[in-house]
């Protein structure tokens, strides 16, 4: 089989190619459509081993932490802190904070492609008749120790108010933690709306 293939390859290489290339005219070009898409799988680990802003203290007593130390554990536990996002909605106001974002998040089979819809959707498809961007959701998303906290604070950055910044005030409204597998399926269709 291999030798046959080689023979064909040699024969072809020796012959001049007779087919002539022709430029595509406008009509031809307009019929060229990009096919295919992207298939993504991935695993993210956000601040699992601590971020760059704070190192982890050795004691749960906040008064003994150095200026670059912070622990986000509950009930006296010592835990690394995750990413912090602060948004200020008023010129001289305080901050909405999404704090301690950390954990491992993985998915398999997120797809991205374009698709023409001209049928289906309970009769809506035929009238719609246009291209959409389709984001195919993965069937399963896995979370491990994924956490976040929703808080309000009087400044964007976190500071240790026991020793260094007594005026710093932050109130955690609630925090969430997700572990395990979530089933999310479907296709998100995105299109310009007129």
């Amino acid at each position: 089989m291999i030798s046959k293939l080689c023979a064909i390859a040699l024969a072809c290489a020796a012959l001049p190619v007779w087919a002539e290339m022709q430029a595509l005219d406008d009509e031809g070009l307009s019929q060229v459509e990009g096919q295919g898409g992207v298939y993504l799988s991935g695993e993210f680990s956000v601040n699992k081993n601590g971020g760059v802003l704070w190192s982890t203290p050795t004691t749960a007593n906040q008064a003994q932490w150095t200026a670059d130390q912070r622990s986000c554990g509950r009930n006296g536990q010592i835990e690394v802190c995750g990413l912090r996002l602060g948004i200020r909605s008023e010129a001289n106001g305080g901050w909405f904070v999404l704090d301690n974002i950390k954990g491992i998040f993985s998915f398999e089979g997120l797809t991205l492609r374009t698709r023409l819809i001209n049928s289906g959707f309970g009769g809506d498809g035929a009238a719609f008749n246009q291209d959409v961007l389709e984001l195919g959701l993965p069937n399963e998303m896995k979370f491990k120790n994924t956490t976040f906290s929703v808080a309000v604070a009087n400044q964007g950055g976190w500071q240790n108010n026991k020793t260094y910044a007594p005026s710093f005030q932050q109130t955690n409204i609630f925090s969430g933690q997700i572990d395990g597998t979530v089933r999310v399926q479907g296709n998100v269709l995105i299109f310009p709306k007129n």
Binding site: L137, F174, Q177, G180, T181, V182, R183, G186, L189
Partner: peptide, 17 residues
């Protein structure tokens, strides 16, 4: 969202604080 389904039965979601 076409053919959407969400099932969090197998995940442990906890709200703290």
């Amino acid at each position: 969202i076409e053919d959407f389904l969400y099932d969090g039965t197998n995940a442990t979601i906890t709200i703290n604080d």
